[in-house]
Design a protein around this nucleic acid. Structure first.
Lengths: 196, 196
DNA sequence: GTCTATAAAGAGATAGAC
DNA sequence: GTCTATCTCTTTATAGAC
């Protein structure tokens, strides 16, 4: 849990919290552990936040903005639906793994938010997933994605394929995020069977 | 959280705990909530268990035995590697969703176990994943699964596709577990692209 | 197998000084 | 922006009666 001690506390707050929340879970992470990692006393934490949950909420908003921006930008320059879909898959993987602590926490710890805040995050997540679904539908309309499976089911399967990566991906392993994005794009489109 | 009040506490213990752990998270679930759901006082809980973590551990062992048994049995009667792989995918989905509370808790709350117990569960999980990997390697050897992607990468992708389902599947929705297993088998093998 | 009562520790959060 | 000191509540778990 190496954290840059040269940055001001406020700048290290969210990423430090995200790292702890991903490693131990939100509920199991104490504000004292967080303060200690930041190098301050527990009480000093409350100069920056109102309460612990504020960190979880802010980090969820952050990570969804991050992936949403990366996906939109990657798709913008592609000429056709199937290219946009491939670009989306690659951008999703690269963005999520670049922002792993926040992204994983957002996906797993949603249930620890208050009902009001959870609704807001779920709405943002649904917005992003609608983008994925649109990309699939567009490719179906252009005849490049099979039409015998509902777009909704294809979207669920694709998100399955992408999202579970947060549980096992280790930066510095034998697969870069780019390679993994390429692998998932290829597998989602063409499958694992031989001769296909 | 409807629980059968006619069964003895000991018989309802694991499944009740699993339901709460899945809904709220292990750390966020108090032993008092669990006792209340069981209809007993908090102290009475400790007639059945030594401590809260025992429940998490027992339920992890349980769920891995469940899916392991289902997978082995489903594969046993299949004549070739590709049929065994399809049977494994279907059995995995049906078993995991049939045992959703325990299975999801096992996958998500591993990190809340003590290091010793976590190692044991990880070993059981790795054993199961080795079974999946073997099925893929067998099918590669029989020329039915593409050999240009390492079995390890195909295994990771397949487990991604299967495992994330725990986050959104709702029994009683428009997809049965059987249909979902069939969908995943088809997509994993043949992909989403048209003309493949 | 469940109860009442309670111990012991740890949690989030606040007050007010520097 | 961080500190010391502390409040208050909740948590897991135990003792011993029925």
């Amino acid at each position: 849990m190496a954290v840059d001690g040269s940055l001001p506390t406020s700048a290290r707050l969210l990423s430090t919290a995200a790292a702890l929340f991903r490693a131990k879970g939100y509920a199991a992470t104490t504000t004292r552990e967080l303060s200690a990692t930041l190098g301050i006393r527990n009480a000093s934490l409350y100069h920056h936040i109102g309460k612990k949950e504020d960190l979880l909420y802010a980090l969820c908003v952050d990570s969804l903005g991050h992936i949403r921006g990366a996906a939109s930008q990657a798709m913008a320059s592609e000429p056709d639906a199937i290219s946009r879909l491939r670009a989306l898959v690659r951008a999703h993987v690269v963005s999520a793994l670049d922002d792993l602590d926040k992204h994983a926490t957002m996906l797993i710890e949603l249930r620890s938010l208050s009902p009001e805040r959870r609704s807001k995050i779920v709405a943002l997540r649904d917005e992003y997933e609608a983008l994925v679904s649109s990309a699939i539908q567009d490719a179906q309309r252009e005849g490049r994605i099979r039409a015998d499976i509902p777009a909704r089911h294809l979207t669920l399967a694709l998100l399955n394929l992408l999202n579970w990566t947060i549980f096992w991906y280790q930066p510095g392993g034998d697969l870069t995020a780019e390679q993994l994005g390429e692998l998932f794009a290829r597998l989602f489109l063409h499958g694992a069977a031989a001769y296909s």
